[in-house]
Design a protein around this nucleic acid. Sequence first.
DNA 1: CTGTTAGCGCGTTCAA
DNA 2: TTGAACGCGCTAACAG
Lengths: 339, 339
Amino acid sequence: MRGPTLKDLAEKLGLSITTVSRALGGYSDVAEATRQRVLQAAEEMGYVPDVTARRLQKGRTDTIGFVIPTFGPRFSDPYFSELLAGIGNEAARQNFDLLVSTRAPDTPEEKQAYRRMVEGRLVDGLLVVRTRVKDPRITYLSNLGFPFVSFGRSDLAVDFTYLDVDGALGMEWVAQHLIALGHERVAYISAPQDLMFCIHRSKGLQATLQRNGLSLRSGHLVVCDLTEGGGFKAMNQLLDLNPRPSAVVACNDLMAMGAMSAAQRRGLAVGHDVAITGFDDIPLAQHAHPPLTTVRQPIYDIGRRICRMLIRMIRGEELPERHVLLEPELVVRESSGIG
Amino acid sequence: MRGPTLKDLAEKLGLSITTVSRALGGYSDVAEATRQRVLQAAEEMGYVPDVTARRLQKGRTDTIGFVIPTFGPRFSDPYFSELLAGIGNEAARQNFDLLVSTRAPDTPEEKQAYRRMVEGRLVDGLLVVRTRVKDPRITYLSNLGFPFVSFGRSDLAVDFTYLDVDGALGMEWVAQHLIALGHERVAYISAPQDLMFCIHRSKGLQATLQRNGLSLRSGHLVVCDLTEGGGFKAMNQLLDLNPRPSAVVACNDLMAMGAMSAAQRRGLAVGHDVAITGFDDIPLAQHAHPPLTTVRQPIYDIGRRICRMLIRMIRGEELPERHVLLEPELVVRESSGIG
DNA sequence: CTGTTAGCGCGTTCAA
DNA sequence: TTGAACGCGCTAACAG
């Protein structure tokens, strides 16, 4: 069942392992006739080099690691499958393998997954996503000098390579859009406050409101878990207020969808009785009813890009930019108001 | 930057590599005092075994492979992230690593990804999902006798281990539900016909319609690509018909959401003017507007389960069931009609 | 109880 | 141009 090794090939051809290895490796110091014989035999016998052995000898794995932070058993986020597709496709393009782990954030299991990948020398570099306040992953990797690229910035005073989307700017646009539509009672469905992207978005929203003489009233800030269910519950809380908010900004699209659902279940016309906005622009956003006003992040490209940055770093190439901040794009649809 | 090896430990302790290895491996034939010294030194120096070296020596990788079939660049499917979470969590629980690839189905790249994992001995077993007609992946793996478990059955005359959800049964329930509501003009938004799950679902739907004296009229069967956008377009086609269908069955939830969006954009009240159903029960289904009638597949558990089956197979344990067919569950919500 | 020897499959010296 | 020898880091068989 196991395939042939160099040894098998060598024996069959009456050559040494070394010669076979070099013929296959495309070295110049091997007779053309010999090379042809070797290549043909390799083809016939279906020789494929043993990746593990090659790794041990080369001292590198040509593999990148990605620990996906999953929340709860029902982890169902279109955002992540798209990010993964971007990462996976780019890795494949560059002949890198992708080792994936799924772990709940800030748990011993997560820590262990990182240690295993790094200290067990399973991967040459890591992709870190959803950075957190005082993110222990960044501290850990930085201290070791292990190659990694993160999607998201950090509050730590260490210098590392990242790519991020300017969430504050995105939220500024959302706020301005709502203000222009005349909204004064704006509410906010936030994500857990230890997530860096949430902090940036929150700041952007609040700063813009304040610059325009507005603010989040008490009770108008609800924190939940980034899921539809969370957005649903949060929205119900907000709609129980009196007076209720006229506009609700959600920290991501999934929560916005849940919020829309809650509003509609109460007979409110979204985009009319209440404005709702999201963040991410997942494909479902444009097919929601009504279509969701949101902020677009090019998530597939982001996946490709952080992967490319990491691979360059692993190869020891100089990176053109070690800190990339992308401008997101406001996508106005009907959920924030018609006209 | 690289961590210590057994050799480093041995030198420091004045022991042989072997002894250190055995002390760490928990073998009984090592003096308790020695073991303690070794353990302490290992702890101090932060020794972590080199996984690659261990793999080469053991002849197994303790890794399972998973090639995700991705369609187009914007691959955004909540279904897959949940499946992946199930697989990943179970793999971690059993101390297996997970190697992931993302490839477009039925391409040379996909074939190559499988070959690399199998023949390059990167993994001990594979998970195959979204089985296709005359699926070359199954032929390939079966011929080699390589351990794999598939989520989905096959039309090939080979015996292999699989788990599947009875799609025909699910669709039978959907059809009966719609028929009971009095629908006679039922249309169907199907997925590509080379997908096995689609064939089962289609058969279940059509057979049930026929048993009740109905059938899909001409033009009432539209094939598209399993995305919201696809469902959207398909629905527009269906709504151009005269008379238009009174009920539309979609092959998955994503397309159903797109279909709802198209209907609503034409001013139709879903659940009233037209009934729409999906399949999968992704979390968004219950937060759609109106909530989506669909068929539930316990996708997270399925991920865990196929992973567990595969690991047992790899370990050489006898599997209690080599062919599992799960009964799905009809979830009636408002998109198929109120009352 | 401990150390020596061997080998997993490969790439890379160094000699011939 | 080819081959023999060595080592990547680890575990296993065999002595002592």
